[in-house]
Amino acid sequence: MPNTLIVGIDISSQSNSIFFIDDAGNHLLKKPFSLPNDQQGANELIQRVIHCLNQYNLSCVKFGMEATSHYTWHLHLHLASSSELLPYKPTFYVLNPSIVKGFKKIYTFLPKTDNIDAIVIASIVSGSVN
């Protein structure tokens, strides 16, 4: 039975594309969503993560994010310092963009979009290919 929420985040200067799967590779959303890359967007992400954890009765959370210049650092720090996420034992995976690009090659005929990259990043962290 899955117990971990995996959050894949493709980060850009203005917005973040986000996707949720569980540790069995099950997609917990129909499609990725975007939030602004600012404090308000980060706070909303925390609330959505907690909602999903509760909805699916999951006890842990892992965040995967592509290292995109300095934009990753701010979100990573904000999530890591969240007292609301602390009970879910958050762990973080900051991925080199070349790893994401290489891993994406196993998916045939996918476009290069931030939404697709969020799904791929979540898959890398979970260790599953769906």
Rank of each mutant, 00 (worst) to 15 (best):
D10G: 09
S13I: 10
S13A: 14
Q14T: 14
Q14M: 11
Q14Y: 13
S15G: 08
N16G: 04
I18C: 06
I18H: 04
F19L: 07
F19G: 05
F20S: 05
I21T: 04
D23V: 07
N26L: 04
K30L: 02
K31E: 03
K31S: 06
P32G: 05
L35D: 05
P36I: 08
N37P: 05
D38P: 08
D38I: 09
D38M: 00
Q39M: 11
Q39E: 13
Q40L: 12
G41R: 05
G41C: 07
A42K: 10
A42Y: 15
N43H: 14
E44L: 12
I46S: 04
R48V: 03
V49P: 04
H51P: 00
C52F: 03
L53I: 07
L53M: 10
L53F: 12
S59W: 10
C60T: 14
V61F: 00
V61I: 04
V61N: 01
G64H: 01
M65V: 06
E66Y: 09
E66R: 13
E66H: 13
T68R: 06
T68M: 08
S69N: 14
H70E: 14
H70C: 09
T72N: 10
W73C: 04
H74K: 11
H76P: 08
L77E: 04
L79E: 04
